[in-house]
């Protein structure tokens, strides 16, 4: 009897939880649904009737006599008209390639620099260690617009303006990644290091063969967040590049959002194109991210 009551309570409790979760996740999703819906509507349709989650091409009666779409026929190119137009209106293929190349290069850089630095900060004793680490952390407190112009000057001196170097090299260090890895390295028991060192392994070897594999989950997190950061950066590439061959996806996207005469359908199609790759990436990595956050020990 008591067990049954408990079960009922549990069931109704979990129904409430589900209800809360469903409502809130719908709220979270609503903007994206709206984005998708708008991306399938043409400008005339949007100006005529701005509200409507169902684009006219998907609505029953498309092309019927007496409707605004009279005589039109449905085809793949008609359905994806905005996507096709958005893709063709700018060198998006090139933008995507640039973005992917820059993101991957940053990932390599960030993993290498963070692993080395975090290892030193976590497991080595040397004078000035804590001060250097503090300086690193302080860098996180300075917003990007502050160092934009001096950085531009440095890039100009290096003749790096409008090159991949400008987009990659300064972003091959992420202080936050060093911080995360350092926290993690600190949790690895000293015995492991001692054992390896007795076996004659050099420090470097210990790092790559023992420590790094133990840090897989957190490395995945770092990789994902580096990709997200690089993929979504806007102000930096805007200022550091000027030819279309060098520009990444976000700049192409921002060009759709003109002050005057914004074409919402096109803009939403382009936005969708820019968001989807990262969503796919996240979908495959989400388990790792969550478990690594748990194991990273976000406590001192």
């Amino acid at each position: 009897m008591a067990a049954r009551e408990g079960m009922i309570r549990r069931i109704s409790g979990s129904t409430t939880i589900h209800l809360l979760l469903i409502i809130s996740s719908l709220t979270m999703l609503m903007p994206f649904v709206w984005m998708l819906a708008t991306s399938f509507r043409d400008t005339m349709e949007i100006t005529r009737e701005p509200y409507g989650f169902v684009p006219q091409i998907f609505a029953p009666g498309f092309g019927d006599v007496g409707t605004p779409t009279e005589g039109q026929t449905l085809s793949i190119s008609r359905i994806f008209a905005n996507y096709i137009e958005a893709w063709q209106s700018a060198p998006f293929g090139r933008y995507f390639l640039n973005t992917i190349f820059v993101a991957l290069s940053c990932v390599v850089g960030v993993v290498v620099t963070s692993a080395l630095a975090a290892y030193a900060f976590a497991r080595m004793e040397f004078k000035g260690r804590d001060i250097i680490f503090m300086v690193f952390l302080a860098m996180m407190m300075v917003p990007e617009p502050v160092y934009l112009v001096p950085s531009f000057i440095i890039m100009a001196r290096l003749h790096w303006l409008d090159t991949y170097y400008a987009l990659i090299v300064p972003w091959t260090v992420k202080v936050f990644s060093i911080f995360l890895l350092r926290q993690h390295f600190k949790t690895i028991p000293q015995d492991l290091f001692d054992a390896a060192t007795i076996d004659g392994a050099s420090r470097f070897k210990v790092l790559w063969t023992i420590v790094m594999p133990l840090s897989r989950a957190i490395l995945v997190t770092i990789v994902i967040f580096t990709i997200i950061g690089s993929w979504n950066s806007f102000l930096w590439p805007l200022v550091m590049t000027h030819s279309p061959e060098m520009r990444p996806i976000q700049i192409g996207l921002a060009a759709f959002s003109q002050e005057e005469g914004t074409e919402y359908g096109l803009m939403m199609a382009a936005t969708t194109l820019s968001v989807v790759p990262l969503l796919i990436l996240y979908f495959f990595a989400q388990k790792q991210i969550i478990s690594s956050m748990a194991s990273s020990g976000l406590k001192e």
Partner: peptide, 19 residues
């Protein structure tokens, strides 16, 4: 070179003059 918006153009000019 297309800076696509005036706001971006003025930022670029300022940075470029500084450099």
């Amino acid at each position: 070179y297309n800076m696509s918006r005036y706001q971006a153009l003025s930022q670029k000019i300022i940075a470029a003059v500084a450099a």
